Each structure stands twice: as C-alpha cells, then as structure tokens.
Simulated scan of single mutants.
Amino acid sequence: MSIKKKLAMGIATGALAVSMIGGGTYAYFSDTETSTNTFKAGTLDLALNPTEIINVDNIKPGDWMNRSFTLKNDGSLDIAKVLLDTDYVVTDANGDNVEDFGQHIRVNFMWNPDKNASGIWLDNVIYNTTLAELKGMTPDAVANKIFIPYFEERGGLKAGDSDTLGVQFEFVENNADQNEFQGDSLQLTWKFEAKQGKGVAK
C-alpha cells in the first residue's frame, strides 16, 4: 500500500473516531419542568351611600341638621385611609354678599362610631369646623387616633367592611346681621378618596 493511501486511510479513521466521540457527548438523560406564574392586581372600590348626604332648604341662623352615611369597601384590597376633600359653590340670590356663606355653615362633628366608640371629641373625623375651613383640610374619615382594644376598630377599612358615620351641620347664629344670606344657596361637594396601605410580603 502506498504512503498516500496509508495516509488517507489514517486521516479517515481519525475523523471517524472524532465524529463518534463528538456524537457521544450528546447522549445524556434529561428532564424538563415548566413554571407558569401569575400576577393579578387587587382592586380599590369605595362605595358611598347615600351619595347625597344632605339636601335641605328654608334654613335660618341657628338651625342644625343631623345626617348619616355609609362608607363601604367593595374592593379586594384593604383601604388604609379615606381622605375627605371639601369644595362648594355659593349662589348669591341678591348680589349683596360681603362674606362667604361657607364661613357660616359649620360641621359641628363628623363621628365614626366604629373607630371612636368612646365618643371622645378629639377622635372625631371633624369637630367644630366651618365649610370654609374644611376647604383647606383633608381629614381621614376612617382614622382612629385613640385606639381602644375590644371596643374600637383600628384605622382603615378592610375589604368587605363598612363604617356608618354621623354628621351634624349648623347654620351658625353669630348674633350679628346675617341678612345678606337670605335666599342664598350653597352647593357642597364632598369627595371621598380611598388610599391603599403600604406594600407587604406576599
């Protein structure tokens, strides 16, 4: 056999051996598992009943009005705060107003008995505050400043829970001439904004 043939056969044999070795590296056991994962966001859904808390006419200085309303958490997430934003529009019937009618309508109290079973006025949502003053405030309607275990709920509104609040309005008699408000009307808008709590480990 010639040297060329021997050399060619050697190269072919070597290539076959390498291909067999290479092919062998792909022969192994295997097992596969697939992980399917889901992230679903919860919901904040605050319900107010009734949506019109007060509608009264023919009032005079010294009159007061008691009303109640319910805040309910219809969402899947707990609510940490329900902030109350106040706005109003005054219609001046005679065009003679010098003062703001909102300075003469006062919220004597807004009380959440679920969060303030003791009735301590310091723990009221609102105490002795005019509508004009409330425009610059955002009180928390479901807060509990003085928590008394076994008698009160902690602050916030858990999913599916509800709080019924009582409120008293008064057209304040200031022992002065208030004739400028005769025939006037005030349209009050209260916006309740639910806020989530802090994130937690899940």
Rank of each mutant, 00 (worst) to 15 (best):
A201H: 01
G156I: 14
K198I: 01
Y150T: 00
N144F: 06
E99D: 15
P139Y: 02
S2G: 15
G42W: 09
G42Y: 10
G75K: 01
I126R: 07
P61F: 06
L44F: 03
S19K: 01
K6I: 13
K5Y: 07
G62M: 05
G102I: 05
Q168C: 08
F169V: 04
T13H: 02
F171Q: 06
I3E: 14
W64R: 08
A17C: 11
Y88E: 07
G62Q: 05
K195A: 09
F29K: 08
D163T: 10
V142H: 09
E173K: 08
G102L: 12
F39M: 13
A194P: 15
S68E: 15
A15H: 02
P149T: 00
E173G: 01
G75D: 13
T70S: 13
F151Q: 09
R67P: 02
N55R: 07
Y127P: 00
A93Q: 11
M9S: 10
F101R: 11
I126K: 03
K195F: 11
I11A: 14
N144T: 11
E170H: 00
Q196G: 12
L131P: 02
P61W: 05
P113W: 04
R67Y: 11
V107Y: 05
S2M: 06
T38H: 11
K158R: 15
N55M: 03
A117P: 01
V172W: 03
K72L: 11
A15N: 01
G95C: 07
D100G: 06
G156H: 12
M9G: 05
L134M: 09
I21E: 02
M65H: 14
L186M: 12
I53N: 02
V107M: 14
M137C: 00
K5L: 12
N175M: 11
G199P: 01
I59Y: 09
Q178G: 03
E152N: 06
K145W: 12
L122D: 15
G197D: 12
E153A: 13
A117W: 00
K40W: 02
Q182L: 10
G95P: 06
